[in-house]
């Protein structure tokens, strides 16, 4: 184990704890802040996998935009949260089924990954000029998906404005 391996495992641990706090923390606003830490942790994982451009985009888009958007949503819908009711949720199936689905999925995937025997360390040589490589890919091989993605963003923006607009005479 090298120093960077220990660092990587520490980042993984922090990210998983933060993600768990998103699910279990009592206040929605705290969950949003833990979600920001989760996004930062994932960005650090990207950085350790030498995907520096994607790590920067992750911080800008997820931490900068999506977390702030969610916090706005929480503040605009405050007071409508409602009290969590225990009675209808307390049946055994509704408690066991989500745990079984999530834990079963994670355990199955970890088991399959270990069975697959992907044991080799990462290759030493790696693309260092990732923004140039990604840009070249986006404008050569992936130019049609790139244009479609811009259309999706435009439609999403217009749709969000139309949906959130107050309808008044």
């Amino acid at each position: 184990m090298t120093v960077s391996d220990v660092l990587f495992l520490a980042i993984c641990l922090i990210t998983l704890v933060a993600a768990w706090r998103v699910v279990v923390s009592a206040k929605v606003m705290h969950a949003a802040l833990w979600l920001g830490l989760t996004f930062f942790g994932v960005a650090a994982v990207f950085l350790m996998l030498s995907a520096d451009f994607v790590a920067a985009a992750q911080v800008l888009v997820y931490v900068g935009a999506i977390t702030v958007l969610l916090i706005f949503g929480i503040m605009l819908s405050e007071g409508t949260e409602g009290t969590p009711r225990g009675s209808e949720r307390s049946s055994l199936g509704r408690k066991v089924a989500p745990v079984g689905a999530a834990a079963g999925f994670a355990a199955l995937m970890v088991y399959l990954y270990h069975q697959a025997g992907l044991r080799q360390p990462p290759p030493a040589e790696v693309a260092t000029d990732t923004p140039r490589a990604i840009g070249t890919l986006l404008f050569s091989d992936f130019v049609i998906p790139f244009e479609v993605a811009s259309l999706v963003l435009l439609v999403g923006m217009v749709g969000a404005i139309v949906l959130a607009m107050r309808e008044e005479g």
């Binding site: 495992l9 989500p98 990954y113 270990h114």
Partner: peptide, 20 residues
């Protein structure tokens, strides 16, 4: 970094499980 691919994939599977 010398960790094999399995560790990164396991981390991602656990993160997905928490989200699910």
């Amino acid at each position: 970094m010398q960790l094999p691919l399995t560790y990164v994939l396991s981390f991602s599977a656990l993160l997905f499980g928490i989200g699910l």
